[in-house]
Write a protein that binds this DNA or RNA. Structure first.
Lengths: 202, 202
DNA sequence: TCATGATTGGACCGCATGGTCCAGTTGTAG
DNA sequence: CTACAACTGGACCATGCGGTCCAATCATGA
């Protein structure tokens, strides 16, 4: 690969984005390099030119890009989770991102399930994406703690993880039903952790 | 298939169980009929003898069996969720089932993610399995309501869905990390819905 | 004993897939 | 203008897969 020119970077990015779309819709196994090649109007040699490691390297690149994209899609809400209203705004935008735009699955979550066991390197990438996401949520929880609406002795990391789990698990239930209600119910229930009365003692 | 003799039923069951194991470890796409054939000491013809519809019919049979198996594995806890202590016992058994026995994934949840879009019939089977599971949990929540520890105006179905989501989502996070803590955190947080103070008014 | 149908073994087929290879084209720096 | 490297096109290959087929074997009831 050596160096990439502007054209090369654009072609590479086109491949990554299109592969991401295909994987979200059909999974890794359901996405063939020929599908990607056709959809991006490229050729086999280009795929292997930009991703010498073949499909697994391509999928890993997709995971990294989707991880960043996912956080970007939550702006500006995710950086201002200091009030209950901002959490609600974030929640609405997130549900719309998944359901309203017909995704019905999480780009990262679907990778996690499918490849956790088979590709350790991919698993690490996915874990990193989840970690970054959880960190942002935990920072928000901490802001709520400072405001006093969340008990000071609660662990922000655990609350963040439970909210993230609600999203992922809600999607798992919503997918086969093709109905957003489990996702919404799970997410709303998880957010109740932010409404806990700030009792002073343990 | 017409009629099955005792021997036939045992062979068929052996195929279903082994396929379930393979799918849990490697996913549907990562499970080839040859793998199953080798592990069960059967032949191709037997696979298609018992499952004329081919792989998709086999996978559907696996889904049905795993759904029943999953509920059976939660006995006797899941039929006695009337006290906080019984919920804790259920929780511990469940975490042990997934983590302690090295599963690291839900037999039904993994099917849900991988095949929701590709096989509508399988999606319906999976949705049914989730529904039966959620019904059991909702019945437990109702028992807690009767005992007064859960507000009467809460919707047991939504709480049950949120608990189930916590399990599924927690597993999604735990899988790539290979660490049970997100599952445990999510599940414990979700169970806090059972500790809500039974305020009288809305 | 014999006939019938359930059961089993395994060779075989066609196809899609991931991956290789090399020749041709484009862009750019000197 | 030219040389070199980035880029592109697409034919080609090996393999693994789902699925088909037919002949052999077993079990059972008449």
């Amino acid at each position: 690969m050596a160096e990439l020119t502007e054209r090369g970077r654009r072609t590479r990015q086109r491949i990554v984005e299109e592969t991401g779309r295909q994987i979200l819709a059909a999974g890794i196994g359901g996405t063939s390099l020929d599908d990607v090649r056709a959809a991006t109007l490229t050729s086999k040699s280009q795929l292997f030119h930009y991703f010498p490691g073949g499909k697994s390297e391509l999928v890993r690149a997709v995971a990294e890009w989707e991880g960043a994209e996912l956080l970007a899609a939550q702006e500006p809400h995710v950086h201002d989770l200091s009030t209950r209203a901002s959490w609600e705004a974030w929640r609405s935008a997130l549900v719309d991102y998944y359901i309203g735009q017909g995704r019905w699955a999480c780009p990262i979550g679907s990778l996690a399930t499918e490849a956790a066991a088979r590709d350790p390197e991919l698993a690490a990438t996915v874990a990193g994406a989840f970690g970054a996401w959880a960190d942002l949520l935990a920072a928000g929880v901490r802001r709520m703690q400072e405001g006093g609406s969340v008990p000071a002795d609660a662990d922000p990391r655990r609350i963040a993880a439970s909210i993230l789990s609600a999203i992922q698990g809600g999607l798992v239930l919503s997918q086969p039903l093709h109905d957003p209600w489990p996702l919404e119910a799970a997410l709303d229930q998880a957010l109740h952790a932010l409404d806990a009365p700030a009792r002073s003692g343990s």
